Amino acid sequence: MRILITTDVFTPTVNGVVTSVLNLRTQLMRRGHDVRILTLSEDNISRKEENVYYIKSFGVNIYPDARATINFHNEYIEEIIDWEPEVIHSQCEFSSFIFAKVISKKLNIPIIHTYHTMYEYYTHYFIKNKSLGKKVVSFLSRKLLNNVTTVIAPTQKVEEILKSYGVENNIVTIPTGINLEKFENEPIKHEIDELKEELGINKEKKVLVTIGRLAREKNVEELLENMKNLLIKDNNLVLLIVGDGPFRKELEKKAKEISIDENVIFTGMINPKDIHKYYKLGDIFVSASQSETQGLTYLEALASGLPAVCKEDLCLRKVIINSYNGFLYKNSNEYLEAIEIILNDNNLYKRMSHNARKVVEEYSEKSFGRQVESIYLNQLLENGAFLTQQGRYSSTFSN
């Protein structure tokens, strides 16, 4: 198949959407498909790099790092139309979705859309009234998604929320796959020791690690408050906060205000190629976010063998299982108790670490690519395209 993926964000940006698109492209190409990506550039210059088209864009204050464009008659769009993709898989709801609709209408081809972002958790960036913000998101999501052929939800949480918005279209839940290999492999010991020394982490310290963009909706403040209470009982702990974002300065200020800054380390932005090493610095993965659609960092942490202690959320159903590979908590007391239980029982820790790796096996990128491919093929079959292509897709079913 000739498959066009449209997305507002792509490399060099690092986030869950980009990771998903990269993994999907890799798997589809391995299965013999011709894949191109249409995205927005990080500046006011359009360019083409191999099979990735970057359309010039500008920043907009909708949510962090959001970009938009008015360049809807770009020469690259004409080049894509001449290429004649057979299916479009859109990944974002703004500018690149407009491209998807234009190309879909021109070629009369289906759009499959993955709903990655729970915008109701981001409305504080542009609407102060939370209730009004949710109504706006509900209306816009319903209007947009009822115009695509199939919606892919990364988790049951997203599927249920979309249905509550009144989305009546076909919704299929497919977890975003990750490349497990680099997280599963044991690191070179001296590299981890050197990284600990570089960050100022004493080898005797136990490390709670959280990884992700530092924004208000990620609720990292709660981790700081919980850390203050943990240190009352055990000063041999470090909270390692990996990543950067618009809320970092406020979090650093908060750590100082509550006098825990000596036990909290902010790494800032790191090279994505090294991310697996930072998981290996930790003893437990922690998160207080409830704004995730799936949360790839949870899966990466589990693949790294880290027990997880995370705030209860529907997206973590069957991912983090109480007393099996970690704990889900509802309040600070449950969080403190979970951390204490895991760190004070070596046998339990080893068992949870083993179980963490077992749980994440079903989230491989191969499984992800295979399931998404089946959506494309079913859609083409429904449209009657399969009958007019002289059996050209039949080999795909045998893979």
Rank of each mutant, 00 (worst) to 15 (best):
V309T: 02
K205M: 13
R31Q: 12
L195H: 05
N202G: 08
S323I: 06
E222L: 14
L316C: 07
I88K: 09
I62Y: 09
E361I: 10
I152H: 00
L144A: 14
N347D: 15
P110D: 03
N229S: 08
R25N: 07
L195T: 06
Y298R: 12
P12K: 06
D261H: 14
E191C: 06
K205H: 11
Y165C: 04
N325Y: 05
E204F: 08
I80E: 01
D8Y: 05
K157T: 05
F327Y: 15
D34A: 10
K206W: 02
T117N: 07
G268M: 12
R25L: 03
N179S: 13
S57W: 03
K134T: 10
F397C: 05
K206G: 02
V158K: 00
K273D: 15
A303Q: 09
A288K: 01
A385K: 14
K105T: 15
G391W: 08
A255V: 02
K130M: 06
N74M: 06
A338C: 07
N44P: 03
E204K: 13
R213M: 12
E50G: 09
I3R: 04
L381P: 01
E50P: 07
S395H: 12
S398Y: 13
I275M: 15
R142W: 03
K228R: 13
S20Y: 01
G200E: 11
E250S: 13
N74D: 15
S95P: 00
N322H: 10
D313Y: 03
E79V: 04
I174G: 03
Y115F: 14
R2L: 07
L296S: 03
E186S: 14
E365H: 11
N226P: 00
V359K: 09
G16I: 00
D283V: 08
V60P: 00
T267I: 12
E250R: 15
H276G: 01
Y363A: 01
K277T: 06
E159D: 12
R67Q: 07
F386I: 15
I103W: 01
S141R: 03
Y122S: 02
A255H: 00
Y363V: 00
T396H: 10
V372F: 00
E217P: 06
L140N: 10
R67F: 02
V172N: 05
V87M: 05
I81N: 02
E373N: 06
K134I: 07
N383M: 14
M269V: 13
E75F: 09
F58C: 13
K228T: 03
C315D: 01
